[in-house]
Every structure is written in C-alpha cells, then in structure tokens.
Design a binder for these strands. Structure first.
Length: 464
RNA sequence: UCCUCGAUAGCUCAAUGGUAGAGCAUCCGGCUGUUAACCGGAGGGUUGUAGGUUCGAAUCCUACUCGGGGAGCCA
C-alpha cells in the first residue's frame, strides 16, 4: 500500500499500473448503478480528477459509499488500471473507500455550470471548482515565476512597509491606520484631532505603493523589486479595481526608461512562458471555456516585439484614425480607456509602451525630459486589459524634483529622506509597477479582478 | 461618484395585469462501464426590501438594498 497523489499517478501511470495505492481527496461527482458506481475524485494536486470505480460485490459498505455527495472527503485504496472505453485513460479500481468527512445535501457546488457572481458569494468553496482551481494554481505559479525571474537576474527582494506615513505620493485615496477611539479621539486645544497622540504619533495609512522605499534600496543594491499587497480606498466600481491588490515594483539604478521597458517586456514574456509550460491543463481550460482566443494571443505575445510609441505620436495616430471617439483625443489630455484600447487592439494589435507623457498629467517623481514639456514615463497597454504597467525614469536632480513637488503642493519637508537619495549619490534610476491581478487577468482571460483574488476586497464588500 | 441593465425554488432561468413553472441539485426507486449519465416519482416559493396604483401585481409606479456591464480614478 503506497500513499500517493493524483499528480504523481498521472505523470507516470505506467509506474503505478496494477499496484496497490492509497489516495485521499474530495468527491466531485458520484454516479452509482446497480452493481457498481463511479467517483470523480480530486485531491487538489492536479487539475483533473481521477475516476474511482467501486463494485457492490467487493465493497462492504456499498450503499453508504454510493450515497456520498459531492464535496465529501474520502480515502480510496485500490489499484491503478486502464479504463476500458473511457474518456480518461486511467482509473482506480477501489478495494476500499473510507469516508473521511461527508458533505450534507445543501453543499452549494454542484457538478454543473455556476455563474461567477454566485461563486463569489461562496468564495470559501469556489477553489473546488474547475475554473477557480485553475485560476489560483496559475496565480501561485505566476508569483513563483516572478520571484524566479528577478532572483536569477540578481535582483534583491525588498519588503517595503505596509504602514506608511507618507501621504504625498498622489496615488489615490488611502486607508487610515489608527488606534484612536473613533467616537472620542484626543484633540488639540483648538479642537482638531491630535494625531501626535495616536499610536505612531502622526497620521499614518496603508501603503499605496512601495516605490519610494524601493528607490532607496535600488540606490544601494542597484537592482531590487518589491512584491506585496497595496491598498487604495478609492470608490472604484469596475471589474479592474480592488481595494487590496498585489503589486510588483522593480527599481533599477544606472538605468533609464529604455532599460526599464526592456526589463518589463522580458519579465512578462518570462512569466507567461513559465505558466504556459507549467500549467498546460489549466491553460487549456481557460482557452476552451473562458477565452477562446487566449492561447493564440499569448503565443503571439511571446514572439512579438512589444511596440513603442510616444504619447505625442499616439495622439496623432488617434486623431488621424477617423474613429468616432466619445472623447476627442488632444495633446495634454490623458488617454481615455477607449483610446488605449484602440491603440493596443487596433493600431498595434499587441502590447505597446506609450512613452513621454505631458508633465501635467503625471506624478512629481518622474524625470523631466529636455523638452521641458514631457516626462520620461511609460504605460504598457495590452489588449483586453488596458493599462498593465505604469513606469518611469525617476527625477534624480534634487532642485528639479523639489521644484516639481512645490508645483504639485507637496511639502518637501515631508519627504526629506526621499530628497536625500538625490543628495547622496543619486544616480539616474527607473522602475515600474505591475498590477499582479491585472497580469493574471491577462494570462487567464478571466475578465473580473474579483475572480483572480482568493478573497477580494472591494468597495462595500469585505466578506470572509 | 455617474450612466445602464438586473434581482422569481439551493443553482440557472420561464411566466408581461388574471391559478408561480422547467432543467439541474436534493430525497425515493430503476438501470451491467458511467463521466454535465440516463429513466420514473417526490419534496421544495412572503417573486430582494418598503410603500403605492388596481377588482386583481412576479408583471405597472416610487424609494432603498444588493449584483452585472460601462465611464471616471488607477495598477
């Protein structure tokens, strides 16, 4: 008797053929007939379930086993054999089926198609479905591939803080972190809330980005990356926004925008290639049931050289397109979603870096170009998802940086440490932020961010 | 936050002003290789909530709640 797992069995079935094995997992479906029955058993190690055949003649407690409902857990002892005339080549002929835990009749996951909306309401059970088993295995593999990509290139992984005091990054609304009594906070003599008596003796919030801290480490280790949770308290009601999501933020020193884009392109191709190779069953499932163009699009991505276009040129292309946009493209305005989609899906038909945006529509830390009108920023637009990456070369001239901060009403005193980085050996450097969930949407074809996060947190929704 | 669509059995959906139904799931029975098995039977409903119109409301009106899609903000 050998304890084993479905993944091992299906990787090398000949090795296990006719051998006594033991396997434990959950029942996906159970069909019994007069003399025998079939369990579809999934043990979580493999996308596919394995079929278990049990016979009335040889199984002592056949009536009980034949009534086991989907969701029940069992241990099966038997031999691996080829399945006659069956859809799957291998099955287990059970000698013994031991119920480990039975699921009552109100188990919500049926062997049928469920809507994603319903499954979100049972997020604790949805990883037992084909779709979510595939999504979350791919999520795990993609996370590993990202670490591997950076580690193999000598990048140092930085754990940037989750709680921060910098309120000046301009990356959206923040969640306040406090231990004060909301009904009766300490107050100053003028009646204002006195944050100096809060836990950290100042106003603090959950991080909206690890970039500024990553820059500090890039100016010591030369190549670093962060990979962690990020929090935005924005009232965004879309399929692409969550209040809690994960970001990858590489930062490289002695490098500019060109190197930044090369890094982003290599990273995306590496991870997509890894997932395609490591999760063929999951990717086949997405291609068949989620997005029938997925495989072709990802294969093209691996082959294609990502396009590069300046913001100024992109505006020209949009203006000359003859398209009837809801918003007329004009220089100085941010690109609308419809413009981004048109560029990546129609004009280039592949991922495209848009570079050198007007300074007025980008953040204070981005390097001012010699033309004085644009900054060395880039957004990577991809078909289907839109903006996947936002990056830039960082402003490394202290006087220009400080001037930009004053322009945008950011108090330089609050970010004195950030200005120090320019003061002491602050070479040119660049970086970008990749929204991990948006990347997963792109890889899997799943079109709602709530379905690529195990337990999603969005506006007015924080269950589980 | 704005625009738009929706909410009926555990799930997916019918019923468009006149007796709330089907498929799946569940339960019972049948079936000698099933695989979204099949065949027969049974149970299962305050039609999202609160008001209103009407002889009569799942259906029409108002508000609210929740959800989908789109926009803005962004990753």
């Amino acid at each position: 008797m050998e304890k084993t797992e479905v993944k091992q069995l299906l990787q090398d079935p000949e090795h296990y053929r006719d051998r006594e094995i033991e396997i434990s997992g959950w029942v996906r479906s159970n069909r019994d007939q007069k003399a025998f029955g079939f369990l579809a058993l999934n043990d979580g190690t493999h996308f596919h379930s394995i079929q278990v055949v049990y016979e009335r003649e040889t199984l002592a407690d056949y009536p009980r086993i034949s009534r086991l409902r989907a969701g029940s857990a069992v241990t099966v002892r038997g031999v691996l054999a080829t399945a006659p005339g069956a859809r799957q080549p291998w099955e287990i002929k059970a000698r013994e089926v031991i119920p480990e835990a039975e699921a009552p009749e109100d188990y919500p996951i049926q062997p049928k198609r469920h809507t994603r909306e319903f499954l979100r309401e049972v997020a604790h059970l949805r990883p037992r479905t084909n779709l979510f088993a595939a999504v979350f295995r791919v999520r795990s593999l993609a996370a590993f591939a990202l670490h591997r990509f950076f580690q193999e290139r000598g990048f140092v992984h930085v754990h940037t803080p989750i709680i921060t005091a910098s309120d000046a990054e301009g990356a959206g609304e923040t969640f306040r972190v406090t231990t004060m009594d909301p009904l009766d906070p300490p107050r100053t003599h003028r009646g204002e809330v006195d944050y100096s008596r809060d836990f950290f003796a100042r106003k603090t919030n959950l991080t909206v980005s690890g970039q500024l801290e990553a820059e500090a480490f890039a100016l010591a280790f030369k190549k670093v990356y962060t990979f962690g949770p990020t929090f935005r308290a924005e009232n965004s009601n879309t399929s692409r926004h969550a209040a809690e999501f994960w970001m990858i933020e590489p930062e490289i020193a002695f490098a500019g925008l060109e190197e930044d884009m090369e890094l982003a392109e290599a990273m995306i191709k590496d991870v997509v290639g890894y997932v395609l190779a490591q999760a063929p069953d999951e990717m086949n499932f997405f291609n068949e049931f989620v997005d029938t163009g997925l495989r072709e699009r990802l294969q093209q991505l691996l082959q294609a050289r990502f396009a590069r276009v300046t913001y100024t040129r992109a505006i020209e292309l949009l203006q000359q397109s003859g398209q009837d946009f809801s918003y007329t493209p004009s220089w100085g305005q941010d690109l609308q979603s419809e413009h981004e989609r048109y560029l990546t899906e129609q004009v280039f038909q592949k991922p495209v870096f848009v570079t050198d945006y007007p300074r007025e529509i980008k953040a204070f830390y981005m390097k001012l170009n010699p033309d004085g009108r644009t900054v060395a920023a880039t957004d990577l637009l991809v078909p289907g998802v839109g903006e996947l990456i936002g990056g830039s070369q960082r402003e490394d001239r202290p006087e220009v940086l400080e001037e930009r901060m004053r322009e945008l009403n950011i108090d330089p005193a609050e970010l004195d440490w950030y200005l120090d980085l320019r003061k002491y050996g602050g070479v040119r450097h660049a970086g970008f932020g990749l929204g991990f969930e948006r990347f997963l949407m792109y890889i899997t074809g799943v079109n709602n961010i709530r379905d690529v996060i195990p337990f999603p947190r969005t506006v007015r929704s924080c269950h589980f």
